[in-house]
Design a protein around this nucleic acid. Structure first.
Length: 559
RNA sequence: UGGCCUAUAGUAUAAUGGUAGUACGACAGAUUUUGGUUCUGUUUGUCUAGGUUCGAAUCCUGGUAGGCCAACCA
């Protein structure tokens, strides 16, 4: 009930307003949207926003969403990308009604072209691409008609058929719409509809050697599928006029195009060209490198689909330029992981602690909660013994006022175990600290503490004899600057050299030996981690998804 | 210097002619066996100049700033 109310109170974005108005006016009784990726790269966080928009709309309103691959350029498109795209959408939790390809419509599109020629609205142009460009004019000057613009219907029909039959080489001829070479919108200056490319297509093979351009494929595909609301990004605004012109002249189902601003995330890039460069130039290990803003990269990093969908919901949709703060994405993943991850203790940079009053050889099994946030809290076993590791920076020989951790003579609690006091600092001949001699308070056992002692700090720890080793990979932002693309020079000059820090050997509590892929962990006081696919029987490798918020680090930065 | 799009706290997004709100961030405090979580509080905004109106973030005009358009890419 309250959930329903909340839904009602949430304001609509401008596209939802359009849809509600259309539905209310009886223009449609259901809506049809589509997600139209070009299979020439991996999906990234910006696509996630579009996916959530298109699929989200038909969850909210009656109707459905098609997945349609915009595969009209055989030179750049590959089946590998088709599979990854489908995988990513499914992982995000969305289901398409029909899996379609613009190439499914090559036959129909050819027929549409014939219709246009017959109406005197398209012609075959023998100009070279340079000639076409030079006759196009500029934004401030009108273009000039091509010398081939007034060919007869018969000649156009004959030539176009021969283009299709493979009689002409690549680039020798195009089919152009006859609109207006003086149009203020340059897209309308006799746009190219078809080009010759003797290239193998990932689906149609060698059946075709002419391929439609985006403008003669996208809108027509929308129309064939009776897409009601065709959503795309702002750079297609000038194309809308052509989109409508073609649908109007062809007298086919009137799909409508609406544009929204693509979402940009700071400290990264989301252009397929740039991401491809990062991969090809080996700045990252692949499309699924955990530092990449790709869906597959975020997935490997440990992001959950829920957190990404939540992020997309929160950033909303609008028409203005934007650069979204990555801290919001981090908030979304922390919020989800805090609820679902299992707590574990892992020491990254060990300092040996000997509990001098704890019997040698004794091992005590303690209980520690898997997740204090869970509705039903479950526990795991934790071995405690005389020799432990704590984090080196959890000890300071000379501690500042607000330092709540271990220092000579000071007491701290070991999480889920006992309170200990630091009695003696052991150093080697160089003065380097090698271990700490501490004593524990037997009455302070976690859950049955009768010591009456209050300590400020609680530390994570592992029993040395029981620890398992692992590698951790700590990730930071891929770029040093908020908006690499807007900086001078090559965007790659702004790559953060410290975006990956590998800690080869960390010491983990033994329960982590049983880690599985897809398990989510919070390493206490360290961050959220998940098992990386590079792990194997011999070696555990964890990726840090995101750090915990760290008030102490912030405090230190101030001084 | 043609056409088109956009302009609300640091960021993102509401307010649909009638009290400028929400989230993230930042800051301060409370709680805490994670310096986590949770809770409370504080901070900061309508690009600008006119006009219409009883009343303008909202409508109109001019300006300013940013973006897009001259691939046989999508």
């Amino acid at each position: 009930m309250s959930e329903h109310k909340k839904e009602e109170e949430k304001s609509l974005n401008f596209i939802e307003e359009i849809i509600e108005a259309d539905l209310a006016a009886g223009k449609y009784d259901h809506i049809v949207t589509r997600f139209p990726p070009e299979p020439n790269g991996y999906l990234h966080i910006g696509h996630a926003s579009s996916i959530c928009l298109n699929f989200g709309l038909t969850r909210k309103y009656p109707g459905y969403t098609n997945l349609r691959f915009d595969d009209t350029n055989p030179v750049t498109e590959e089946t590998e990308y088709v599979e990854s795209i489908k995988d990513d959408i499914r992982w995000l939790g969305f289901t398409w009604k029909n899996e379609l390809y613009a190439s499914d419509y090559f036959g129909k599109l050819y027929d549409f072209a014939i219709v246009l020629i017959n109406k005197g609205l398209a012609y075959v142009d023998d100009s070279t691409s340079e000639q076409i460009a030079s006759l196009k004019g500029t934004p401030t000057e009108p273009g000039v008609n091509s010398p081939f613009r007034d060919r007869s219907r018969e000649e156009n029909l004959d030539l176009f058929m021969r283009m299709k039959n493979g009689e002409f080489p690549d680039g020798s001829r195009t089919l152009r719409a006859k609109v207006d070479m003086a149009h203020p919108n340059m897209i309308m200056r006799d746009p190219i509809l078809y080009r010759i490319k003797h290239a193998h297509h990932h689906r149609t093979g060698d059946e075709w050697c002419i391929y439609p351009m985006y403008d003669f494929a996208h809108g027509q595909s929308d129309s064939i599928e009776e897409i009601t609301h065709s959503l795309c990004t702002m750079e297609f605004i000038p194309h809308r006029e052509l989109y409508d012109w073609l649908i109007n002249k062809l007298e086919i189902f009137p799909s409508h195009q609406y544009e929204f601003a693509r979402r940009n995330l700071n400290y990264t890039v989301t252009s397929k060209r740039k991401l491809l460069q990062l991969v090809n130039d080996k700045h990252v290990t692949g499309w699924d490198d955990p530092r990449m803003p790709t869906i597959t990269g975020l997935r490997r990093r440990g992001y959950t689909p829920e957190s990404i969908v939540d992020f997309c919901d929160r950033i909303g949709i609008a028409k203005r330029e934007n650069l979204i703060d990555v801290s919001l994405l981090e908030f979304c993943i922390r919020e989800h992981l805090n609820k679902i991850s299992h707590r574990r203790m892992v020491v990254f940079d060990p300092l040996k602690v000997i509990i001098t009053n704890y019997p040698e050889g004794q091992v005590e099994m303690l209980k520690s909660e898997d997740n204090p946030e869970a509705e039903k809290v479950e526990y795991r076993d934790l071995p405690f013994s005389r020799e432990l590791y704590i984090e080196a920076d959890d000890f300071m020989e000379v501690a500042p006022k607000k330092y709540f951790r271990l220092a000579p003579g000071q007491m701290v609690r070991l999480k889920s175990a006992y309170i200990i006091r630091c009695d003696e600092v052991i150093k080697d001949e160089n003065g380097k600290i090698t271990s700490l001699h501490c004593s524990y308070i037997p009455e302070s056992k976690s859950g049955e503490d009768s010591s009456g002692i209050n300590v400020k700090g609680t530390l994570h720890w592992v029993s040395i004899a029981h620890a398992v080793t692992a590698e951790v990979r700590l990730y930071d932002r891929l770029f040093r600057v908020e908006d690499p693309s807007s900086e001078d020079g090559d965007f790659k000059d702004y790559i953060n050299p410290d975006s990956l820090k590998v800690v080869e050997t960390v010491f983990a509590e033994p329960s982590l030996k049983k880690s599985r892929f897809d398990d989510r962990y919070q390493f206490l006081r360290k961050g959220y981690f998940c098992l990386d696919k590079d792990s194997n029987e011999e070696k555990l490798i964890f990726n840090r998804t995101v750090t915990l918020k760290d008030a102490w680090a912030k405090e230190q930065k101030k001084n």
